[in-house]
Amino acid sequence: MAALEVARNEFMPPGAKASSDNPKLAECLARRDVYDVTVIRSSESLYFVSFIPKLERCGLRDVVLMDAGAVYAIDEKGRVLSVL
């Protein structure tokens, strides 16, 4: 759970806003409930946390995003090692 919280705060810092030429898309991407989140424990000291947006949760079915979401590598001390 600690790895998830560290990654979430890096990915969507409290108070941060998404930017887009499409205001509905920006509003959608700013919502935490829009993202599917997966946490994988690779070893005792390494976790991968991924965030993948599901725009249909905002009613945006015709919007195509080429590079959305992220994967974070988090160590056992809560440090972000890498972001993909």
Rank of each mutant, 00 (worst) to 15 (best):
Ala2Asn: 14
Ala3Gln: 07
Leu4Thr: 06
Leu4Gln: 11
Leu4His: 11
Glu5Leu: 10
Glu5Ala: 07
Val6Gln: 08
Ala7Gly: 11
Arg8Val: 03
Arg8Ala: 15
Arg8Gly: 08
Arg8Glu: 13
Glu10Leu: 00
Glu10Pro: 01
Glu10His: 06
Met12Arg: 08
Met12Ala: 14
Pro14Thr: 06
Gly15Val: 00
Gly15Asp: 13
Ala16Trp: 08
Ala16Val: 08
Ala18Gln: 07
Ala18Phe: 03
Ser19Ala: 05
Ser20Gly: 05
Asn22Tyr: 03
Asn22Gly: 07
Pro23Val: 06
Pro23Met: 12
Lys24Pro: 01
Leu25Ile: 02
Ala26Ser: 08
Ala26Glu: 07
Ala26Val: 04
Ala26Asp: 09
Glu27Ser: 14
Glu27Asp: 14
Glu27His: 11
Glu27Arg: 14
Cys28Phe: 03
Ala30Val: 04
Arg31Leu: 07
Arg31Pro: 02
Arg32Trp: 05
Arg32Asp: 13
Arg32Phe: 02
Asp33Glu: 15
Asp33Arg: 13
Asp33Thr: 13
Val34Trp: 01
Val34Cys: 06
Val34Pro: 01
Tyr35Ser: 11
Tyr35Pro: 07
Tyr35Leu: 08
Tyr35Glu: 11
Asp36Asn: 13
Asp36Cys: 03
Asp36Tyr: 00
Val37Cys: 10
Val37Ser: 03
Val37Lys: 03
Thr38Lys: 12
Val39Ile: 14
Val39His: 00
Val39Asp: 02
Ile40Cys: 04
Ile40His: 05
Ile40Tyr: 05
Ile40Glu: 15
Arg41Gly: 10
Ser42Asn: 11
Ser42Thr: 11
Ser42Tyr: 10
Ser42Glu: 15
Ser43Asp: 14
Ser43Tyr: 03
Glu44His: 10
Ser45Thr: 10
Tyr47Gln: 08
Phe48Asn: 08
Phe48His: 12
Phe48Asp: 06
Phe48Ile: 13
Val49His: 07
Val49Ile: 15
Ser50Trp: 01
Phe51Trp: 03
Pro53Leu: 04
Pro53Asp: 05
Lys54Ala: 08
Lys54Tyr: 03
Leu55Asn: 06
Leu55Asp: 12
Leu55Thr: 09
Leu55Met: 13
Leu55Gly: 09
Glu56Thr: 10
Arg57Trp: 05
Arg57Cys: 11
Arg57Ser: 12
Cys58Glu: 09
Cys58Ser: 08
Gly59Val: 07
Arg61Ser: 14
Arg61Asn: 15
Asp62Asn: 14
Asp62Ser: 08
Val63His: 02
Val63Asn: 05
Val64Met: 10
Leu65Thr: 07
Leu65Cys: 11
Met66Phe: 04
Met66Ala: 12
Asp67Cys: 02
Ala68His: 03
Gly69Phe: 03
Gly69Met: 06
Gly69His: 08
Ala70Ser: 13
Val71Arg: 10
Tyr72Gly: 06
Ala73Ser: 15
Ala73Phe: 05
Ile74Gln: 02
Asp75Glu: 11
Glu76Tyr: 04
Glu76Ala: 13
Lys77Thr: 13
Lys77Ser: 15
Lys77Pro: 10
Lys77Ile: 11
Gly78Thr: 08
Gly78Ser: 12
Gly78Tyr: 07
Arg79Glu: 15
Val80Ser: 10
Val80Ile: 15
Leu81Ile: 12
Leu81Gln: 14
Val83Lys: 00
Leu84Asp: 11
Leu84Gly: 09
Leu84Ile: 06
